[in-house]
């Protein structure tokens, strides 16, 4: 099940899904002062048990690969567009984004190849709107906006792969490949965050001007039943030391606003 199929599945049980989940109306509507800082925008809590069942049924390996492929399509097109936008990325930072772009393109190709090997059909590339309906109108003319969305996509990518690794436990080859992509996204995320003068790691659920949904749950300090703070660490360190996953519906709420069809 790819992201778009998830959309349609949700629509079946909740006709208002687009209004509730679309970042245009929800996550991204609280722009203040023309900046990127979002007011607290709750992740939609509409997802009921019927949807959870739909997600649970989506755990076949090709569906997970197509979920990943859709996110990689988004990243791939985002960086290609950014690199093609004249004057956007400073000359002395281009090497960084050329490397990311190269990897996202490779991920798209790799995932398509694996899907082909599984005799599965790769999802079609969606049509993207990186302005999210005009909310990020200057994404390809303002470097800071571009950086902010880059961070959003990389950190979300890391969380998305992490959220589905467990479903691949029975398939060693695909699981390992997914982990190998996951850590590359984390390398990207760290670099882009540092370009924004943020730490390379995520402290608490600090959204650094991005929609709060991207970092929801990153303030968790309990791991495998053990409280990291009670081991003598500050909550800052305890949260930085462990990255948290996102479930597909959370990823959808974040990425969906950039997908036109």
């Amino acid at each position: 099940m790819n992201l778009l199929k998830i959309f349609s599945e949700i629509e079946k049980v909740d006709g208002d899904v687009y209004e509730k989940m679309s970042s245009r109306r929800g996550l991204f509507k609280h722009l203040s002062g023309g900046g990127l800082k979002m007011a607290a925008a709750a992740v939609p809590v509409l997802l009921g048990s019927s949807l959870n069942k739909a997600y649970a049924q989506s755990s076949a390996v090709p569906d997970i690969l197509n979920y990943a492929l859709t996110l990689e399509y988004l990243e791939d097109e985002f960086y290609k567009s950014g690199l093609a936008a004249s004057g956007l990325i400073p000359e002395n930072r281009r090497a960084i984004f050329q490397q990311i772009s190269k990897h996202e393109t490779a991920h798209v190709g790799f995932l398509k190849t694996v899907l082909g090997q599984l005799s599965a059909t790769p999802a079609d590339k969606p049509e993207f709107d990186f302005t999210a309906g005009g909310k990020f109108a200057d994404v390809f003319t303002n470097y800071q906006t571009f950086l902010a969305l880059s961070q959003a996509f990389e950190d979300t990518g890391v969380r998305a792969y992490k959220g589905r690794a467990g479903e691949l436990l029975g398939n060693a080859t695909v699981l390992t490949a997914a982990l190998q992509i996951h850590s590359v996204e984390a390398r990207h995320a760290s670099m882009v965050r540092r370009l924004r003068e943020e730490k390379g790691w995520i402290t608490g659920n600090d959204s650094s001007g991005l929609p709060d949904a991207i970092y929801e749950g990153e303030d968790n300090v309990t791991q495998g039943g053990a409280s990291i703070t009670s081991l003598g660490y500050s909550s800052g360190i305890a949260t930085e030391a462990f990255d948290e996953p996102l479930a597909p519906e959370q990823v959808l709420a974040i990425a969906g606003g950039f997908i036109v069809s």
């Binding site: 996951h182 995320a189 760290s190 030391a241 990255d243 948290e244």
Partner: peptide
């Protein structure tokens, strides 16, 4: 998975 991405951020 929660730890490896932090190691990758360090790297």
């Amino acid at each position: 998975g929660k730890i490896v991405s932090v190691e990758a951020r360090h790297a």
